[in-house]
């Protein structure tokens, strides 16, 4: 069975239902609107470029076992397996990957969301606080007292 999806900029994509259902949001919508599937499902927060990429991901992972429980994703306990295809898939620039994380988050495509977060973590982990601020254009809004407090707490926490 096919499902049609419409991106925020009006482009329509037709995909297999089981592929679209990797998105928790679409899966839930399909349950509610079972009778009315003539109209494309509108995805107001996802542009055509990102949607095409999300669909590409879902096509590849259509047969993966589903993991419903968020607990299972705790990367500290067990990192998700990343295959060669996933590695190729993540070779994109930061802007694209951040758009994809946002798309995966709004569509609730959990494995893609986790893949993206791992990518973001890989960027952040190599950076100093100053570099992180520069990249995301964040202001350093700490008072000296607050900064001291962070350093002071460090004595006994693991962080």
């Amino acid at each position: 069975m096919k499902v049609t999806l419409e991106s925020s900029d009006g482009q329509v994509f037709t995909v297999d239902k089981e592929v679209a259902e990797l998105s928790v949001i679409i899966k839930e919508m399909l349950v509610i609107e079972q009778a009315n599937q003539d109209h494309p499902i509108p995805l107001l927060n996802v542009g055509a470029v990102e949607l095409a990429k999300v669909i590409e991901y879902c096509e590849h992972h259509r047969n993966d076992p589903t993991i419903d429980d968020d607990e299972d994703y705790d990367s500290r306990k067990k990192p998700i397996e990343m295959d060669d295809w996933d590695k190729q898939f993540t070779i994109v620039n930061k802007e694209m990957m951040f758009e994809l994380i946002l798309a995966a988050n709004s569509m609730q495509v959990k494995p893609l969301l986790h893949l993206g977060c791992r990518y973001a973590a890989d960027i952040v982990k190599r950076m100093s606080p100053t570099e992180i601020r520069d990249l995301f254009q964040i202001d350093d809004d700490f008072t000296p007292e607050e900064q001291d407090k962070i350093e002071w707490e460090k004595q006994w926490t693991k962080l």
Binding site: Y73, D74, S75, R76, C117, R118, A121, D122, V124, K125, M127, S128, P129, I132, R133, I138, D139, D140, D141, F142, Q147, I150, K154, K158, L159
Partner: peptide
């Protein structure tokens, strides 16, 4: 959840 403790420590100092 993908970061180690010392990496999180850097993030605490951003803003």
């Amino acid at each position: 959840s993908c970061l180690r403790d010392e990496e999180l420590a850097q993030c605490l100092r951003v803003s």
